[in-house]
Design a protein around this nucleic acid. Structure first.
Lengths: 160, 160
DNA sequence: TTTAAATTATCACGAGACGAAACGATGTCT
DNA sequence: AGACATCGTTTCGTCTCGTGATAATTTAAA
């Protein structure tokens, strides 16, 4: 029974209609779009929010280390940090030990922005899950977390 | 209690870690990538598969009507149909009633390809959900369907 | 008939994301 | 000192996509 082939009949194995893959893709893109819309008034895009959140949990890392953590190549990372630095949300400090690299830090404005993002995203999530009871929401979160755990999603990755 | 504001404490309302929004986005993009990888050996990309599936349920429609259904602009639609026609999976037939327009049909090869896509995607989904029991998988599908229903996702849309 | 509208196709242009390669500055190793 | 690797950066080309303009064919309206 460890074999995953769904040879047992049930709903057609590969049909897109009974599977959760299609639903995951659809809901994922939809959720991303809703989040982006909520973020727009703040002058940010999802990737900015992603970096800010990850940075809050990993302050002082080098730019490249952060990029690797997020799955971004160095070129893209330079651009992303540039944008956030120009907005005064992130700071590049020379690393005293290794002056080739920068250490990334949140500014006070960056920390404030983090709060603003949370305030913007919270109600949106509540609206998205309005058709679910609180128990169902917890159930869903638990199941998704199980899936994510198997795939090695660690809350550190940045959505494509 | 119909109010959705989570004023009651519990896990911090806007925190990304307890919410399913972040998980949905992550899992959605991951599922899309896995699907694309499974499709690559067939020489197809997700958009091709999307059109083939939607076309199977809407044969005989005009090219532009299909494009509208999928959320693609006419220019892009021409290109997409070109690609599938060159592969012999889709056929453009002159519409007898209105000879300005084409009616789109699947060829036999297109129908075969549909089966191949299902065979490629099925095991992938099983692998993705390997950490879930069969009951949990059904539960998850049900919950996702509820969410999708609220958002008006009708199995007709093409993932961004 | 004349005129306007619809459908498909084609082209040019720019926006945006992305990767590859190279470069200067710095650090490390021999 | 010299050779080599690493970090951040810049530049270049590629890919995808959207928009707008244009044309050819066919249909519908005046």
């Amino acid at each position: 029974m460890s074999e995953v082939t769904p040879a047992t009949a049930g709903p057609a194995p590969g049909s897109e209609h009974d599977g959760f893959t299609y639903l995951l893709v659809q809901l994922g893109t939809r959720a991303a779009r809703l989040f982006a819309e909520r973020l727009a008034p703040l002058g940010l895009e999802p990737r900015h929010a992603g970096l800010l959140f990850r940075l809050a949990a990993n302050e002082g890392r080098s730019q490249q280390a952060m990029g690797e953590l997020l799955g971004l190549n160095p070129t893209r990372m330079v651009f992303l940090v540039d944008e956030l630095e120009q907005r005064g949300l992130v700071e590049r400090r020379r690393n005293a030990a290794d002056r080739r690299s920068y250490a990334l830090y949140l500014t006070d404005a960056g920390r404030d922005m983090l709060g603003a993002i949370r305030e913007a995203a919270g109600p949106e999530q509540a609206r998205l899950g309005a058709s679910l009871s609180q128990g169902e929401r917890g159930q869903l979160t638990g199941l998704l977390r199980k899936l994510a755990g198997e795939l090695g999603i660690t809350e550190q990755h940045l959505p494509g």
